[in-house]
Design a protein around this nucleic acid. Structure first.
Length: 660
DNA sequence: ATTGCGACTTAGGAAAGCCGTT
DNA sequence: AACGGCTTTCCTAAGTCGCAAT
């Protein structure tokens, strides 16, 4: 595999990459990340690999063709290599370019040839409450029918959550609950406020306490049972390889918890039965058996999709799927492709930037809007922003769906000109707040777009994601709005790593640098988290650890001093040795102290920032792997076991000189 | 052009697991 | 052994984007 890789690299060096040169920045602070005052200065890509668009000399048509052909060859080579990689890795076939490759090469959307699995694991059946756990209505005990009781337990289990205090939640819940009641119950239970779920709630709390207090043996037994289920249902056979399934358990019934201000919160998410399930597998496989006495809704054999099981969920009417784990070939290949697309964007991003800057001047409104939106997507890593059905989901927006009320224009703000203030709820109702200076032309355009509009009018009324993506497709094959997020995230990591890593530093300090680079990306992408509930306390604990370590260091230093003095007087071997060992002790403690301090810094800076999402979805893992190799950092320090499984392809492929 | 649907990726919070300390 | 704090895994909601029907 290596030699193949090297071959590709050689080809690349043999004149494909134009020499890197610096481009002048149109703005010195092009990128603005939300939330943080200290702006993450990020330079544009140094390496501009797009001689095609900015030729230094006029090429003859033949030159171009030859180059194109060679580029094509290179692309094919790369494709073949990665194809081989995934097959060698996953199918464990050693021989390359065997005839079997030909028949296994999938065309026109075929995702697999063979697929066999055991179907889903259903949620356990409802177990009625013991009779001593009572429900009261208006102070009086009332025995509920099993159906009504089950739904009541869903509410009881959430009693401590603030959800259950929200009007919409209560209203939706009560409406759906009533549907499950018998007509007598329905007649009687008319006011949720009069319902007392207290005993139920306490019962479940006691149950969970009991579960915690179980003996080792009991816990072990449960663990073994889970393992058995995992072994039986958690894997499938796809094209000769056993693959881990991501979510083989069907979602249990419960109350829908949307994020943010969701109009459907509290609705009953109904139980999924075998007759709701569509099974997907290959014709020549053993079709999974539905539970005794039941039937699947449908069994189909569609090898153009990757899912094994699907059903339609009742809240939004959307389809849910059971698919493979990220470690699987099918996900890994896709992930790799995603980063390759982002790398292709790197090669032409300057051309695209130049283009949209031109388009700011267009006489067509739709083109100006498109150009300004694209600028935001590129500069601020905003999401595309599909339109959503009003009243069906929380009111959140992305770039194309921004409304006038979401931005404020300041001709001047804190000494900066043309400042735009963004304040809106994005995916998962996470707030995006950012103030950024923009170019005058952008500013003027925004003023124009906002003229004669109400606050709740669309900012880009001539634009949607479909129009934008169609345009992007014309600029580069496979380019869509989200590729910019991937590209900007990965290039930022690479750049930050280059900037922050110092050769002399020890491993913990290097890892802090890595986390800081990662953090820069998370800030750019606005990946936030609620500060952990115990954050303050855990910070204090760490601080006292640091203080204790400082004291310990002072002691050790004192001891070293006296040992030195002692050795000076005595001048014997023994006291010399004592000095040496004290020196070692001081050193060791210093290192520990340093480690703690680094940890404290890291944690403090990470208070409200979630690194996981970008690490898992936006950062080309080969950048991290290369960085580890370059600085002799064990890759386990950066990726845990699951992550290493997901990124196995990158860990195998990337050398220390990998360039995104 | 618009809408709806289907398939897939991206997302944060909760639960579970783990590991060092008491 | 119990506890507490941190990490990992699980869970499933919420996006993106292409395609087909209208």
């Amino acid at each position: 595999m290596k030699s193949f890789d090297e071959k590709i690299k050689k080809e690349k060096e043999n004149g494909f990459a134009s020499p890197p040169y610096m481009k002048s920045e149109p703005e010195d602070d092009f990128y603005h990340s939300p939330k943080h005052e200290r702006s993450l200065k990020r330079e544009r890509d140094v390496d501009d690999n797009d001689a095609e668009f900015k030729p230094k000399k006029i090429k003859t048509e033949n030159d171009k063709k030859a180059k194109k052909r060679k580029q094509d060859e290179l692309d094919v080579l790369l494709l073949v290599f990665c194809f081989c990689y995934f097959h060698c890795h996953y199918v464990k076939m050693i021989y390359l370019l065997d005839s079997r490759w030909e028949e296994e090469r999938y065309t026109d959307g075929v995702k697999w040839k063979f697929l066999e699995h055991k179907g889903p694991v259903f949620a356990p059946a409802y177990e009625p409450l013991p009779s001593h756990v009572k429900f009261y209505y208006d102070g009086k005990h009332m025995k509920l029918s099993p159906e009504a009781e089950e739904v009541a337990t869903f509410f009881a289990k959430m009693l401590d959550h603030e959800y259950t205090t929200k009007d919409i939640f209560r209203k939706n819940f009560f409406k759906d609950w009533r549907k499950e009641m018998t007509s007598e119950e329905r007649a009687k239970l008319t006011d949720l406020k009069k319902c007392d779920f207290g005993e139920m709630s306490n019962y479940f709390k006691a149950q969970s306490e009991a579960r915690k207090a179980m003996s080792k043996e009991e816990k072990q037994k449960i663990k073994e049972e889970n393992e058995r289920i995992l072994q039986q249902y958690g894997f499938c056979l796809m094209d000769n390889h056993k693959e881990r399934i991501a979510n083989f358990r069907i979602e249990p019934p419960g109350l829908f918890r949307g994020r943010g201000d969701h109009p459907k919160m509290g609705m009953l998410k109904r139980r999924i039965r075998p007759q709701d399930i569509i099974i997907n597998c290959s014709k020549d496989s053993k079709v999974p058996e539905p539970p005794p006495g039941t039937k699947w809704k449908e069994v189909r054999h569609d090898n153009k999709v990757t899912w094994l099981v699907s059903w339609t969920e009742n809240i939004q009417g959307s389809i849910k799927y059971i698919m493979l784990n990220p470690s699987s070939r099918i996900k890994g290949e896709k992930d790799w492709q995603k980063y390759e697309t982002a790398r292709r964007l790197k090669k032409c991003v300057d051309r695209i930037r130049a283009q949209y800057r031109e388009d700011w001047k267009s006489k067509e409104m739709r083109i100006r809007q498109r150009a300004v939106a694209l600028y935001f997507i590129d500069k601020l890593a905003l999401r595309a922003g599909n339109e959503k059905e009003e009243g069906e989901t929380a009111d959140t927006v992305g770039c194309c769906s921004l409304r006038v009320e979401h931005i404020k224009l300041y001709p001047e703000n804190e000494g900066q000109e043309y400042v735009v203030e963004f304040d809106f709820l994005g995916k998962d109702s996470i707030r995006y707040y950012n103030r950024v200076p923009v170019e005058k032309r952008v500013f003027k355009n925004l003023q124009l777009f906002m003229e004669n509009k109400e606050p709740d009018d669309d900012l880009f009324d001539r634009l949607n994601t479909s129009i934008l993506n169609k345009h992007l497709q014309e600029l580069m094959d496979g380019l869509t709005a989200k590729v910019f997020r991937t590209y900007n995230a990965s290039i930022t990591l690479q750049q930050q790593l280059k900037e922050l890593t110092t050769a002399e530093e020890n491993i913990p300090a290097k890892i802090l640098s890595y986390n800081r680079a990662n953090r820069a990306v998370a800030i750019l992408c606005n990946h936030q988290r609620a500060p952990p509930k115990t954050f303050e306390k855990s910070m204090q604990n760490l601080q006292s650890k640091i203080d204790a370590k400082r004291d310990q260091l002072a002691d050790a230093k004192r001891e070293l001093k006296s040992a030195k003095a002692d050795a000076k007087v005595r001048k014997d071997e023994k006291s010399k040795k004592a000095v040496e060992s004290k020196k070692k002790a001081v050193q060791r403690i210093e290192e520990q102290l340093m480690k703690l301090e680094v940890q404290a810094t890291d944690r403090e800076e990470n208070k409200q920032i979630a690194l996981g999402t970008s690490k898992l979805n936006y950062l080309d893992p080969r950048i991290s792997v290369a960085w580890c190799k370059k600085w002799g950092i064990p890759v386990e320090k950066i990726y845990n076991k699951t992550q290493r499984e997901k990124f196995a392809w990158a860990i195998d492929m990337a050398e220390d000189d990998y360039e995104f």
